[in-house]
Amino acid sequence: MQKLTRRGWLTVIVMALLAVLPPVFYLTGNAFYLDLATRLTILAIAAVSLNLILGYGGLISFGHAAFVGLGAYAVGIPAYHWLYYSWGDWAVNGLVQFPLAIIVSAVFALLTGIVCLRTRGVYFIMITMAFAQMVYYLIVSIEEYGGDDGLVIDTRSELPLINLDDPLQLFGLSYVSLLVAMLLVRMIVNSRFGMVLQGAKGNEERMISLGFNVYAYRLTAYVISGAMAGYAGALLGNFTTFISPEMMDWSRSGELMFMVILGGVATTLGPVLGAVSFIVIEEILSTITIYWHLPFGLMLIGVVLFVRGGLAGLLTGRGGKDD
């Protein structure tokens, strides 16, 4: 075992608090805080997945909510058919729904990535957003699944050993999923693949002339990231038991980007800190004033402009380099 750095300790402490505090609140009669924690944990998974391409890959993807939304619909649509069209019980089986969510999002990432990754800079931002909006409008136009109004998920995913109707167990699954996602991304970015991804962020032309097919590596990262976000979406569907196109709106994608940037790009803990702060501050400000968007926006801009390395950098007193 290597010795933990300051940032390593911060990661351990934050993750331990996140594991312990919400269940304690729940068991002492504050169910609301467990709900909040589950939501932020799920969003943190999506932020961690975005960090792979945004933070480590330097790809400013502005359509990440589409993957999350698709994952949620991969839970909601089979459940809908199970209820109204008497599809078999497999349709509400989590061992079908979760893989389906991952596959749908991965395929969508592959098909759109093939096109998006041929563009650079502002064009990349625009086209990733355009594809996400395309899915948004597609879902809006399907009356069967509630169109604009969305769809209630009547039955949560059925899983062996776990009952997702129990808020504590749903939180537990989300928390473990977040841990796995963080470790997975950490492993990937430190591997040969991750070195290529980060090298291409730093100097694409050099990486190509070294002999790397940068496009193929980025596309792979894009698909992995999309698949992870799809998984987060499946959890989110189970949490909210309600799906609507609004989940894929560009402002949702923007929020995920803010979480990553706020927390500190290209760090293991950053996206989690970002998600925690985002949800907590949003919650506090929205109880004080209905005009909370303005101070919140100003704060985000402040962090992005003035704190190098985001919150993770601020808390450990250094810039955005990972430990």
Partner: peptide
């Protein structure tokens, strides 16, 4: 370099 597991360093 489609190798995802072993730390490159």
């Amino acid at each position: 370099s489609f190798r995802f597991i072993r730390p490159a360093r």
